[in-house]
Design a protein around this nucleic acid. Structure first.
Length: 148
DNA sequence: GCCAACGTTGGC
DNA sequence: GCCAACGTTGGC
């Protein structure tokens, strides 16, 4: 799950009450589908820092809620408000995530790209712009071996 | 700041 | 339903 650290970083999540926050503001249908249809409490996720000096995987968090409608989409005062989202038929979804730990060092995108084992990851596909995407168990385990 | 890649919008 | 124009993402 990607976030720009200048907007919301792993450290921000760590300092949130209970280390927990709603992963809100996702406004892409494919990413929405992953949240709404695939995520369950107990799932783990990498926190990826994008659009920054060192893009890469910064830490690990846990999904701690079922998917539910994104409240920011229904709040006219919120910058992520979507007037086309209907409370009776919500268009956008969130899950709550809880900080688990930071990696010993950020695993840079450039390092991930060097690994043939990870070539199939959507994250590494050319032109990928998804902010939420799946990681296979094999990819997950392999990435953790890159942590020194 | 540049620009490639992609998603969305809207005219037809 | 097509597709050009536009906006956004995100690495570099």
């Amino acid at each position: 799950m990607k976030s720009e650290p200048s907007v919301y970083s792993l450290q921000d999540l760590a300092q949130a009450p209970g280390g927990t926050a709603a992963w809100d503001g996702v406004r892409n249908y494919q990413a929405r589908n992953f949240i709404r249809d695939q995520m369950q409490p107990g799932d783990l996720a990498f926190f990826y820092h994008s659009s920054c000096a060192q893009p890469g995987i910064a830490g690990i968090m846990e999904v701690v809620s079922q998917p539910y409608p994104d409240p920011t989409a229904l709040d006219p005062a919120d910058e992520h408000y979507d007037p086309k989202s209907d409370p009776a038929n919500p268009r956008w979804y969130v899950v709550d995530v809880r900080y688990q730990r930071a990696l010993s060092e950020v695993i840079p995108l450039a390092r991930l790209k060097q690994c043939p084992e990870l070539a199939q990851m959507p994250l590494l596909r050319r032109g990928n712009r998804l902010s939420v995407m799946p990681v296979t168990p094999e990819q997950w385990r392999y990435i953790l071996t890159l942590e020194c």
